[in-house]
Simulated assay, not measured.
Amino acid sequence: MNRLNLHLVSDSTGETLEMIAKAALAQFDDPHVSRHFWPMVRSRQHLDRIVPELAANPGLVLYTLVNAESRVRLEEHCRHLGLPAVAVLDQVTAALESQLGQEAHGRPGRQHSMDEHYFKRVDAIHYTIAHDDGVGYEEWEEADIVLTGVSRTSKTPTSIYLANRGYKVANIPLVVESPPPKALFGLRHPLVVGLTTAPERLVQIRRNRLLTLNETTETSYVDNGRVKDELQFARRMFADNGWPVIDVTRRSIEETAAAIIRLVQDRSRRDQQIGGVSKPI
């Protein structure tokens, strides 16, 4: 199989471009791809400096350049080198212009501007880090989302991912011998979500965790019967409190977070319908 050189050229951080490329590549079976990442390309001089790399590693060029002069120059270089170049956001931007009845501003990195949403995300990240692993129960009511589940059910990485989406998240481990603070059961503002997984998968994850810590002693932490009891304990708690449950066995962190965000949005819609509020979500 031929190896593809994939050049990602952006006039901003390139985060959006990387996510698009990753999503597209996920549709192929083990593609042999060498990624060449070119962020913050905002000048003619910078653009010209990467041309030798394009020539030395011919392949597909994906770009998000909003400056017209930079776009034209990159496209000219690609035509000269015989390389396909795709402006990945053009069709979406054009469709939005048509529907919104206005032209796009065309300013590099505009989605990363330090506006209200930016500071909301920073605040969410600070809150989430400060309320990891059951810490700060006095402030759980301030959270948007509270994740709970037994050890190694992806609570912390899911929390951090959600925080980067602007949600304040607290996560609480469930331990049979040490019930969580009573504050968990009286929360009104946050959406409490239970995370669970298949016992076999959980044992495997815990064993791998112990290996990274150079711990080879067998303990109840990885005992099959014990793990099943823990998961049953957690499921009873979820059911008794009417908390929605997400099985993370075959889900990536992104997929789990997406399911949680849908739950938050569904609850928001229900609250608005009950309150007779018609503003968009």
Rank of each mutant, 00 (worst) to 15 (best):
G186C: 07
L187G: 08
L187A: 10
R188Q: 15
H189M: 13
P190D: 12
L191D: 02
L191Y: 04
V192D: 00
V193K: 08
V193Q: 04
G194L: 00
G194Y: 12
T196E: 03
T196Q: 05
A198L: 07
E200N: 10
E200A: 06
R201D: 04
L202H: 02
V203Q: 04
Q204E: 15
Q204R: 15
Q204W: 15
I205P: 00
N208I: 05
L210Q: 13
L211Q: 15
L211A: 13
L211M: 13
T212L: 12
T212I: 02
T212E: 15
L213N: 09
N214C: 07
E218L: 11
E218K: 11
S220P: 04
Y221T: 10
Y221P: 04
V222A: 05
V222F: 11
V222Y: 11
V222W: 12
V222E: 02
D223Y: 14
N224D: 14
N224Y: 15
R226M: 11
K228C: 15
K228Q: 14
K228D: 09
D229F: 14
D229Y: 13
E230D: 07
F233S: 04
A234H: 09
A234R: 06
R235V: 05
R236C: 09
R236K: 15
F238R: 01
D240R: 09
G242N: 05
W243I: 01
W243E: 00
P244I: 01
V245P: 00
V245L: 01
I246K: 02
I246M: 03
D247R: 03
T249H: 06
R250D: 15
R250F: 13
R251M: 00
I253V: 08
I253D: 00
E254G: 09
E254M: 08
E255F: 01
T256Y: 00
T256L: 01
A258V: 05
A258S: 11
A259T: 12
A259P: 05
I260S: 01
I260M: 03
V264C: 10
D266T: 05
R267K: 14
S268H: 13
S268N: 13
R269W: 09
R270P: 05
